[in-house]
């Protein structure tokens, strides 16, 4: 295979219909950027799940009365509740956190939001049992057993909140991936169309190639490589879009949440890890579309 020959054919091919090539590259780029965005959300959810795994707790919030008067949990009903919790099967540890400690913790989490801190008063923070379970999914047991007991204001289940949060993220991921899919379909049609136009403009040349005994590979490879090269350029643009998106968009809107450690930040490393998949997708889609187009619509 004469690579220089194939290469020069590809370059002339791409230059011959510049407008189509640009359209093809842009569509591919947007589609891949959306796919990349979706993959980043997936990574974020995974990271968060790993972060919170084992750390998830059920908080048993105590009434105002207990919070105000029983700083060390030595009186009833607090002491009774503690031993009841410790004796519940499936409970790993029980930590008592009084109102002042709770307020300190709140201040640490939200130190990036001074406006919020100004509004907060220790009186709003109840004393709490932070209960860690052996199986983090079995939170219902605690809720059923302790909700409504004297001294208990409520049972707060972090996993329920996180579940809802993950649901939101997964919804976002699905929307992004569906958009990516639609855009990918447009890219696919454009690739197919470009190849057909390209094959038509080169029909004389291809006719001669066939006549002098060029193999199928020789006649078709330039078209395939043309599509794949455009796909790769599209993937490069997509990675560029993700980097720009991170620097000017995602970083800004998620700064508060990431700085307080609630959600992990999207790093350049994440984009780096996601991008090989974008290249792979681009190459596979361009090559298969090219191949199928040549087989079905272009008689070479």
């Amino acid at each position: 295979m004469r690579t220089s020959f194939v290469f020069s054919e590809v370059v002339t091919g791409l230059r011959r219909n510049v407008t189509m090539t640009i359209a093809m590259i842009l569509t591919t780029a947007i589609s891949l950027a959306l796919l990349g965005g979706g993959l980043l959300v997936v990574r974020m959810v995974d990271k968060m799940q790993a972060n919170y795994a084992g750390k998830l707790e059920v908080s048993v919030l105590l009434t105002n009365d207990v919070s105000a008067n029983d700083k060390d949990c030595t009186q009833q009903p607090c002491a009774g509740l503690r031993s009841a919790l410790e004796q519940t099967s499936g409970v790993e540890t029980v930590v008592f956190q009084n109102r002042d400690e709770g307020f300190e913790r709140f201040k640490r989490i939200f130190e990036a939001q001074p406006e919020l801190l100004k509004l907060a008063r220790p009186e709003a923070i109840p004393a709490t049992f932070r209960v860690k379970l052996e199986d983090p999914d079995r939170t219902d047991v605690i809720k059923q057993a302790f909700e409504g007991k004297p001294g208990v204001k409520g049972v707060d289940d972090q996993s329920k909140f996180l579940e809802r949060f993950f649901e939101g993220l997964n919804g976002l991921r699905d929307v992004v991936l569906i958009l990516a899919l639609i855009q990918a379909f447009a890219a696919l049609l454009l690739i197919s169309n470009t190849i057909q136009v390209s094959a038509f403009t080169r029909r004389v040349e291809v006719g001669i190639m066939r006549l002098v005994g060029a193999t199928r590979w020789y006649t078709q490879l330039p078209f395939l490589i043309e599509a794949v090269v455009a796909g790769i350029i599209g993937a490069v643009c997509a990675v560029g879009l993700l980097v720009l998106g991170k620097a000017f968009f995602i970083d800004r809107i998620t700064r508060n949440l990431t700085e307080s450690g609630i959600i992990p930040p999207v790093g350049y490393l994440d984009i780096l890890i996601v991008s090989p998949w974008l290249f792979l997708t681009a190459i596979v889609i361009a090559a298969t579309t090219g191949y199928v187009t040549l087989r079905l619509y272009v008689r070479l």
Partner: peptide, 10 residues
């Protein structure tokens, strides 16, 4: 061209 496309060496 006729030789290039059947892979003859330069």
């Amino acid at each position: 061209f006729a030789l290039e496309v059947i892979g003859k060496p330069r």
